[in-house]
């Protein structure tokens, strides 16, 4: 699969841009958290597109955001369960 570029993104409608980013992010996140990849990807897609592109190139920054989203998600779930 060829790398996603900002040029490819801006040529697409906004909603499709998020889908394109999600298609690339999901498999990476799925490797870290198979059970919650869809939810975590959905949360991360609210981040600015330029930052999401950077996260596709830098797995370290992706992992940091995934960890952040997961911590928030788990805290939220614990609160709901209580």
């Amino acid at each position: 699969q060829e790398p996603l570029t900002s040029g490819m993104l801006t040529a697409a409608p906004p909603q499709e841009q998020k889908q394109m980013l999600g298609e690339r992010l999901f498999p990476l996140i799925q490797r870290m958290h198979p059970d919650m990849a869809g939810k975590i990807t959905g949360m991360l897609l609210e981040i600015d597109n330029s930052e999401l592109l950077h996260m596709l190139e830098s797995h370290e920054s992706l992992r940091a955001k995934v960890d952040e989203a997961l911590a928030v998600l788990q805290a939220h779930q614990a609160k709901e369960a209580a």
Binding site: Q19, G22, K39, E68, A69, V72
Partner: peptide, 21 residues
Amino acid sequence: EVFVPGQNVHAPAFVPSFMKD
């Protein structure tokens, strides 16, 4: 736009195309 974790928790889950019909 800044990532605000507390708000993002309500974002819908992403469904990749290979999981759709």
